[in-house]
Write a protein that binds this DNA or RNA. Structure first.
Length: 520
RNA sequence: AGGGGCGUAGCUCAGUGGUAGAGCAGCGGCCUUUUAAGCCGAAGGUCGUGGGUUCGAUCCCCACCGCCCCUACCA
């Protein structure tokens, strides 16, 4: 099926036929290169004109034509391959009539292979002196503008292949994303963790508070949920004696889309038996700082207007963070002790809201019947969260917003849980896992009783049964890979670190076979 | 979901209440070291869609569609 721009599509198709008639297969099967562009630049980028003439370097190279300057009986082009570009020079005298006729019929975007040797042009640009030219793939549609690239954000996301071809920075982001994931894998592989894959289709969507996607299996005739978290399966594996497991994979949450949220997103989750949340904080610090160093070559990286320094991490309890980041003009700074008193968090929300209203800021809305713990978290989110630019652990979470965490021995209203932040982004969440089956069942039942779309309707009995078999003391954590990638690539939208972010379907083309008179 | 912004040629962008503009890409011609190659010539548009105001709308008004940003929910 032809695509827009039609005139150019048809023109290129015509050239394809001409090429075929001349004996050039427009879609041949393979081409063996002697080098990548990067290898050539690495090895010969410093070779002088004379050196290249004295000892000729033969090369075979394939790539996509990104620029083309044809001057009658000779011409230049830039081939792009593996993210690099190299100029080629094609001369009638050298390649002969048939190959030059091919060169004449080439378009921007075509993929060719060349064979020849390296030389330097008058202006000293390292180039390939082409002796043989082969068409490797005819392109039927034009590339985006060669100078400005593709900047229309919508087109960039919808036709990511064009974005990747014409915007080098975009390619670099996704290469870095792969490096981040590779560094994480090697971190855990080096610590005797086993990488596992657990189901993405769940009978009961547990392990987080979120609205799930629903799908259906025909043969079994059951509805299934796309998973919102792998948590409960990973802990079953720890029960099964896999003491250290991790999984890097997709979660799906049927919720809003924003610069920090995509309906499908990638999480690292890992669990370590005989360990608690404090040990995980140490491990996290080591993991993240190591990844940053490895991928960015420094522990200090730019993020927007800030520099985030991963060589120092601060650790604050949630109450300490509220006190530390309490706005100066909002009256006396509360103390952690005050926030610990019954009604203390709510009273301070009121004081905060008074200030926020005067400043025209958003108020913290307290739902009726909210607990002290809920209010503490709400206040924390409003007062502190977006100020956490430097790497920070927040710990001492309220029990009633942490259904899967183990309580503190000395204060059952708090759990052994932390989240960590950097660049104002919430990056991860870890805790000592609740392994008391009776307490877990009580909390699940309480959650179900409270209801809502974001809570399973059904008790995960098998998970409770697994706990009854004994989950050793275990700490577990989830890290948002997309957000971590945002931070390390200085990207401010999650869509810039996800190759194909979810978009509304494209408006149907005018020519589409949709019923025109469906509605009158 | 609410608020703000954007939508003009395949791409990057100007522009105006009175027949729609450039550069790149494409087409024809010239050109054997160019590089955002150059020169000459011709072509390309339901100005997001649908209504309204107007003698006349791409421009003003309304609705809708899509995208971006902020806020809310969330990781």
């Amino acid at each position: 099926m032809p695509f827009e721009p039609l005139d150019q599509y048809l023109q290129r198709q015509k050239k394809l036929k001409e090429l075929a008639a001349l004996g050039h297969d427009p879609y041949p099967h393979r081409f063996v290169s002697s080098h990548t562009v990067a290898e050539i630049v690495d090895r010969y980028g410093a070779s002088t004109k004379d050196a290249l003439e004295a000892g000729k370097v033969p090369v075979r190279l394939a790539g996509r034509i990104m620029t083309l300057r044809l001057m009658g009986k000779a011409g230049f082009a830039h081939l792009q391959a593996q993210g690099g570009r190299l100029q080629i020079y094609v001369k009638l005298d050298i390649v002969g009539e048939k190959a030059f006729e091919l060169f004449r019929l080439l378009d921007l975007g075509d993929i060719i292979g060349v064979e020849g040797h390296l030389f330097r042009t008058k202006t000293d640009e390292l180039s390939v002196w082409v002796e043989k030219l082969t068409l490797l793939t005819k392109s039927l549609l034009p590339l985006p503008e060669k100078w400005h690239g593709l900047s229309d954000v919508e087109l960039r996301y919808r036709q990511r292949y064009l974005d990747l071809l014409s915007n080098k920075e975009v390619r670099d982001i996704f290469i870095k994303r792969a490096e981040i994931i590779r560094a994480i894998r090697s971190f855990f592989d080096g610590r005797s963790y086993i990488e596992v894959e657990t189901p993405m289709m769940h009978r009961i969507a547990g392990g987080a508070t979120a609205r799930p996607f629903i799908t259906h299996h025909n043969t079994l005739d059951i509805n299934l949920y796309l998973r919102i978290a792998p948590e409960l399966y990973l802990k079953r594996l720890v029960v099964g004696g896999l003491d250290r497991v991790y999984e890097i994979n997709r979660n799906f949450r049927n919720e809003g889309i924003s610069t920090q949220h995509n309906p499908e997103f990638t999480m690292l989750e890992f669990y370590q038996a005989y360990s608690d949340f404090r040990e995980l904080m140490d491990l996290t610090e080591e993991l993240i700082t190591g990844v940053v160093q490895k991928v960015c070559g420094s522990t200090s990286i730019p993020f927007g207007e800030h520099t985030v320094d991963f060589s120092k991490w601060q650790r604050l309890s949630m109450r300490e963070a509220i006190c530390k980041y309490w706005p100066a003009e909002a009256g006396a700074v509360p103390t952690p002790a005050e926030l610990a008193k019954p009604g203390g968090p709510a009273a301070n929300i009121e004081r905060y809201n008074k200030w926020a209203a005067a400043k025209g800021k958003d108020l913290a809305h307290v739902p009726s019947g909210a607990s002290d713990g809920f209010c503490t978290a709400l206040l924390f989110e409003h007062v502190a969260e977006d100020q956490l630019i430097q790497p920070t652990f927040i710990f001492d979470f309220p029990t009633d917003i942490s259904p899967l965490s183990k309580q503190r021995d000395d204060d059952p209203s708090l759990v052994e849980r932390f989240e960590f932040f950097a660049g104002g982004l919430e990056l991860g969440n870890g805790f000592s896992e609740l392994n008391d089956p009776e307490e877990q069942e009580r909390r699940f039942r309480e959650q179900i009783a409270r209801g809502g779309d974001e809570v399973p309707k059904e008790l995960d009995l098998d998970y409770i049964r697994a706990l009854c078999h004994g989950l050793p003391p275990t700490a577990g954590e989830g890290v948002g890979i997309d957000r971590l990638t945002m931070l390390l690539t200085n990207s401010h939208s999650i869509r810039d670190v996800i190759l194909f972010p979810l978009m509304r379907p494209e408006a149907p083309a005018a020519s589409a076979e949709s019923p025109a008179d469906e509605k009158k």
